[in-house]
Write a protein that binds this DNA or RNA. Sequence first.
RNA 1: GCGCCCGUAGCUCAGUUGGAUAGAGCGCUUGCCUCCGGAGCAAGAGGUCACAGGUUCGAAUCCUGUCGGGCGUACCA
Length: 542
Amino acid sequence: MNLKDYLSQKLNQALTELDLPSVDFQLAPTKNPQFGDLSTNLALILAKQAKQNPIELANKLKSELDLDNSFVREVSVTPPGFINFTFSNHYLFEALNDVLNKGVDYGKSDMGTGQSANVEFVSANPTGPLTVGHGRQSVLGDTVGNILQWHGYNVTREYYYNDAGRQMRILGQSVAARYFQELGKDIALPEDGYQGSYIKDIAKSIIVDQGQELTKESPLFRELAEKTIFSDIRESLKQIGIVHDQFTNEKTFYESGAIDDIVESLKKKDLVYESEGASWFRTTALGKEQDRVLIKSSGEPTYRLPDIAYHRNKLDRKFDLVVDIFGADHQDTYPDVLSALEALDYDVSSIRVLIHQFVTLIRSGEVVKMSTRKANFVTLDELTNLVGKDVVRYFFIMRGMNSHLNFDLDLAQDQSEKNPVYYLQYAHARIVNILKHGEHLDFKYSTDFNAERLTHDSELTLLKSIGEFPDIMAMALKSLEPQLIANYLHGLAGHFHRFYSDCRVITDDKELSQARLALIFGAKTVIANGLSILGVNAPDRM
RNA sequence: GCGCCCGUAGCUCAGUUGGAUAGAGCGCUUGCCUCCGGAGCAAGAGGUCACAGGUUCGAAUCCUGUCGGGCGUACCA
């Protein structure tokens, strides 16, 4: 039984009894234990329209409530008019039993059961290695996928790329230039060429594998560069536990005729016109500031057009939920894609777009402007090799996606030794160790224990925290903001560490020891479940 | 110029439908292992929540303006 639901039901009943209007109120955990565990602002909100003093109103509501005291031990009213509820210990013990019974499933819901979701993320074109900038989106997308799976969604992780555009053409030319340079010919990099040393490596391996007779126009330069770089990208992702289920190439939408079809359909709606040799999308007719080019005067579509085709394709695949993870640089473009689809009579309500801000890289106290083309970047691999998968994942997920975070490379290693992720992992390892220690002394964790023996503040605080996990996961599903989980776990680990220093688990008091073993087993379960959603290891030893 | 995001402790950042005394880590000061792991715990110093107005019983949170930063504002993606 969810206590929140129970209480809001009871409060609504009280409103009816008192002939008061029903209103949207809050029922939230308190920050300060002196106000109990849950508190509501109901009386405060109602005071004005009921034309009553909020405290008097709160007291009336309080006396109208008929609460089961096996759930709620105490109800109080505090200024300026909050009604506060304190859990009964019995309720907390029920929550603990719930964790122990459900184990690895504790905190799951069936809100997504039977539904499919597509999460598109990374989607970097294979022009160079992934950078720490890509790391943020990679971890964010994968974790959002985990959250959806946790609630029962059948999740497809998708990577969308374009191997036929301008970027890739320049990539091929860059490799060709290095190839001929290696062979002693004086051919300059193209003006916007890729300057990274990986281009030379690719050129060298082409000399080894394909010989020295390739012509400047050979498609092999671009094709082999793509193949090599893509395999590096996949490996970089794999290093931090990320595997995509599907790779979708923009090119397929040209070949299938989808691109032409989009243009034709938009033309029929009079949303496309020709001007200065280009085809324009009449977005002003859809309430936008300015029209946008769909097909350049060169005959090449802009990225917008295949994006529309791609999203139509995703809608045609009938996912119940389509999540796009974009960097802040795409902020302006997805609304056009959505309006195009709406203009084509598609329902876009299943599309959720998550925009994340960029990582600012700082090296030697200076901001580094990252550019793949100019080879001014720190790769994701370098970071992973430096601090390891768990730190990389936790570092990128512990901050909100809207924060413009600064990443100081010089501090990365230093900070990694103090990284908050170890705080969580250490709590887990500590618990495992206590359980082992207990078994050694013939104290074995069992679901048969007397919860009434848990009376210490540290025990009850830990217990409450454990019980909040399902709520946190429901919030994470609603907001798709993984840092909620990281914040919660940090708090939970803190409650455990405090409990640990206040209370000894294995003692001469067998009954108490059994109860505490059950408590820490519950804590371990939640930490492990939470970390698994973040894609972070929960080690038995560190 | 216009649009989106942001401005919270020395530094990096939490603070989620507006709630009670604004938090954590790092760094700094000081205590705590004969005892389940000290990668921990406890305590201290450190704040005009950029600034100015407004809404409200109540604002870091919502609104307006100013200042500062990031990203867009391409026939790049």
